[in-house]
């Protein structure tokens, strides 16, 4: 899993490295372009697969993403992290391939309560669930739920950066996370409790 900080560097150092590489890409440095690809391609590929469901279209979205990066590196203004910028481009390229069908997003008001004091029943189910069952339920979720969970727990983006990628307020990201969790808990089959290993 390509989470931030897993290589022993702080997120700030990772970001500094990304910015240096992107500056060099803007100057036409092919080695920097390859290095940037090697740093982020796996995470972006996983994200594209989450959005598109298949490897073939995800590979094409990844290609489009890095072609766009090569041509537009100089246009990066530094208003977000480089990684966030890359995920944003990847998202746009992936959504182009959904043939105009935007990811269906549940309106915020329909989402489950974010800060309820009482423990939710699905919390109990999920806390007892086996990881494999959770993974299987994840694959059956709608794309917009998979997307926010993937960005938070697989890509390892902070909530503020997820909000930039999705173009929504931070509060909306949090409510989507809760909603996605509740939906996944409901999708868990009966008897998916964690077994002792």
């Amino acid at each position: 899993m390509n989470r931030r900080g897993d290589r022993g560097y702080s997120p700030l150092m990772e970001e500094e490295h990304d910015r240096i590489l992107l500056d060099r890409v803007a100057a036409g440095d092919e080695r920097a372009f390859e290095a940037l690809y090697e740093r982020h391609a796996t995470a972006l590929f996983a994200y594209a697969r989450t959005l598109l469901g298949e490897s073939g279209p995800a590979e094409e979205a990844l290609q489009d993403t890095f072609v766009a990066v090569w041509h537009n590196a100089a246009a990066f203004e530094g208003r977000s992290a480089v990684r966030t910028w890359l995920f944003g481009i990847c998202r746009r390229q992936a959504l182009k391939r959904t043939r105009g069908q935007q990811l269906r997003v549940v309106p915020v008001e329909d989402a489950v309560s974010v800060a309820s004091d009482a423990p939710e029943p699905e919390t109990v189910v999920l806390a007892r669930a086996d990881a494999e069952a959770v993974a299987a339920a994840f694959t059956r979720l709608p794309a917009h739920h998979r997307e926010v969970l993937q960005l938070a727990f697989a890509a390892g983006l902070p909530v503020t950066e997820i909000a930039r990628v999705l173009g929504v307020p931070v509060g909306t990201v949090k409510s989507r996370l809760f909603h996605a969790r509740a939906t996944l808990a409901k999708a868990l089959p009966t008897g998916a409790e964690r077994t002792s290993r």
Binding site: T42, E59, A131, A133, V134, Q150, R181, A185
Partner: peptide, 23 residues
Amino acid sequence: RDLTAWRHLATGVQIATATTPPP
């Protein structure tokens, strides 16, 4: 228990989205 639920969710997502690098 709530935290455990989030952690199980995180682990499940990581398992489900685990992927090899692109070809």
